[in-house]
Design a protein around this nucleic acid. Structure first.
Lengths: 196, 196
DNA sequence: ACTAGTGTATTGAACATTCATTCGGTTTGC
DNA sequence: GCAAACCGAATGAATGTTCAATACACTAGT
């Protein structure tokens, strides 16, 4: 994987910022160009069209998120610990990259999402679901579909970050620790004695 | 609250469909008009601008969702039961109105969301958080902020519906029952004996 | 070392199109 | 007969994209 050309990266970052500020429809190519410090025509040297730019950008950040996932997952670490490490890892990443989160959320809820073929979209899911598949297999988690557990976990993280960045969340000491705990308590294999 | 004029409702429904199909930026007023069976100018009789239309539409569906919430919440029903009733109620509503869900998600992740003042946005939250406040007060739920529990619960419902409507979820018998159960197990006040 | 040559990167003004909005006129309901 | 509802072609601004021209990087030949 060769390093991304400077200008290409600048165009990505510029688009990320603008989409957060103004949405897809309020982000003209002329502004993308200006903020990236390039000419309008240059964008079309790297990308076929606006749609192409946005889809490529989606892949670009998808790979970053996968990297976070990989860095926090380790078969040598106890599963329970990995679970929390991944939770915090993604939480940190999204918190520190709010542009990414907003773009991501706008993207997956927009018709662009259907432009991405299944294989590419689920590259991220492959890793996420794999982790939960392991948890089920090893008996740490309730025996549901890994897809379900993975999706619910991710939604949990994302909505926590959104609360935080919207300023709705007073991060009282320990409150941040209890959120992944809710998730864990809900998903972990219940001992029979606990049935209410 | 007087009943909404036929044309106005037609414009709302048309916009809902189109936003799902093509996103905000791919939804021209001319198409909204055509699909609603009205002239372009008529839209401007009911709404000041496109932005106004979209924000009004947001209120329109917000009120529908509040209605679902109210219809499933009843102080006379045991809390635990209400919890599941609300979960299924919203699940059903979003499942049967996928346009609403898509619009809602696009809206809250877009800059339009910042056009809505806090009081209006949180009209829905008022009811949702109120329900969780009660659960905490009565000792059914973990003593976290109602905002946190409410937001996590809603995210849980929404991502379940999205999984379903994306076709990723094989609704094996009982699998749908386990998802709110995960939520409940995570949020309910843990009896001390259960600590692992 | 110098030149000519070749392909890539970059520019930004110009173009064609799209789209939100307007407005003068027409219909409808009372 | 009047006001509100409605129409839809016209308008003007905004925007994605193109393209002819320029700058740059690199090689090969002398």
């Amino acid at each position: 994987m060769e390093p991304i050309a400077d200008k290409k990266k600048a165009i990505f970052e510029s688009t990320l910022e603008l989409v957060r500020e103004k949405g897809f429809h309020g982000t003209p190519m002329s502004l993308v160009a200006k903020r990236a410090g390039v000419a309008a025509g240059t964008i079309y040297h790297y990308f076929e069209s606006k749609q192409d730019l946005i889809i490529e950008l989606f892949y670009y950040i998808r790979d970053q998120i996968i990297a976070v996932l990989k860095s926090e997952d380790a078969a040598s670490v106890p599963y329970h610990k990995c679970f929390f490490r991944i939770w915090y890892g993604l939480y940190e990443y999204y918190s520190q990259n709010p542009n990414v989160l907003m773009f991501f959320e706008q993207f997956v809820n927009s018709p662009y999402n259907t432009c991405v073929n299944e294989a590419n979209r689920s590259e991220f899911h492959k890793y996420l679901f794999g982790f939960f598949e392991r948890g089920i297999r090893e008996g740490h988690l309730k025996p549901l579909s890994p897809k379900i557990l993975g999706t619910l976990a991710h939604a949990n993280i994302i909505s926590t970050v959104k609360m935080y960045s919207a300023g709705h969340l007073v991060l009282e000491e320990g409150e941040l620790k209890q959120i992944p705990q809710i998730l864990w308590d809900g998903m972990r294999a219940q001992s029979v004695a606990c049935k209410v």
